[in-house]
């Protein structure tokens, strides 16, 4: 009886963990729809969605470990991998967006990067006037 109660409570807890992660992912996707420019959307995607996935994978790891007697190294590896690559992907994408001239939201306050942006990768001898687009 007692052990059964503990088992049920643990399952419920893991379910709530997974549902929380799913809701955070959904919030990230909602931000992707709602926010006004690429950079802000990238904030939503890299942060909320990553945290959501981490919670879901942690819930799965706990479930397999406690109930199926299978401590999965693959899930740990997946958690570490997502955790490491999400910021890198956000950074690469933001840099590509800024270099191809995606403009900021009109309510943005300042842009320190604008003056130093260069026309191409090869022309790196200081700023050469204004960037010539592509």
């Amino acid at each position: 009886m007692n052990a059964e109660t503990i088992t049920a409570a643990g399952e419920l807890l893991i379910g709530v963990l997974v549902l929380t992660g799913a809701s955070l992912s959904a919030l990230g996707a909602f931000g992707l729809v709602r926010l006004p420019d690429v950079y802000l959307r990238s904030h939503a995607a890299t942060k909320s969605a990553t945290l959501g996935v981490l919670l879901v994978l942690a819930g799965a790891f706990l479930y397999f470990w406690l109930y199926l007697e299978h401590a999965s190294a693959k899930l740990i590896l997946g958690i570490v991998f997502v955790f490491m690559t999400a910021p890198v992907a956000g950074h690469l994408n933001g840099r590509a967006a800024h270099r191809t001239g995606v403009s900021l939201w009109e309510k943005s306050v300042r842009d320190d990067l604008k003056q130093t942006v260069k026309p191409g990768r090869e022309g790196m001898n200081g700023p050469q006037g204004e960037s010539s687009g592509d």
Binding site: S25, V38, A45, V56, L57, V82, A86, T100
Partner: peptide, 29 residues
């Protein structure tokens, strides 16, 4: 509107798909 938007959303779709598969494997034990 821009290509970078599409890349962000593709990345997010991949990550969400990953967590969906985790949930599936929990459902099917």
């Amino acid at each position: 509107p821009s290509m970078a938007d599409r890349i962000v959303s593709l990345d997010t779709i991949g990550i969400i798909l990953l967590s969906m598969i985790a949930v599936f494997s929990m459902l099917f034990k």
